[in-house]
């Protein structure tokens, strides 16, 4: 009987070892996934900041006036073509 118990304990120890190794491997895999997400967020964060400034510059009165002038010129050309 005691040999049986000893055997069971040994099997338990082996199982625990394998489980621990598996969990650690899974843990590393999960952490690498988190790392990817983290890098992804960082990349998007930087892109968002850039877009924020570009949006700000694109919406400045001078830029809007320039766009408006371009639009009016195009509109004028279009109307002249229609008349011809």
């Amino acid at each position: 009987m005691r040999w049986l118990i000893a055997g069971l304990f040994f099997a338990l120890a082996v199982a625990l070892t394998i489980a621990t190794a598996a969990i650690r491997a899974q843990n590393i895999a999960e952490r690498r996934d988190i790392q990817r997400v983290y890098d992804d967020v960082q990349d998007r964060d930087k892109d968002l900041i850039r877009l924020g400034y570009e949006g700000l510059e694109a919406a400045s009165p001078e830029r809007l006036a320039q766009l408006h002038r371009e639009w009016l010129q195009n509109e004028l050309l279009r109307q002249q073509e229609q008349v011809q």
Binding site: V41, Q42, D45, L48, I49, L51, G52, Y53, E54, G55, L56, A58, A59
Partner: peptide, 12 residues
């Protein structure tokens, strides 16, 4: 750092 968060207006 990562707290940078501009309000996005007129994004392309």
């Amino acid at each position: 750092q990562t707290q940078l968060a501009p309000s996005g207006v007129g994004f392309r």
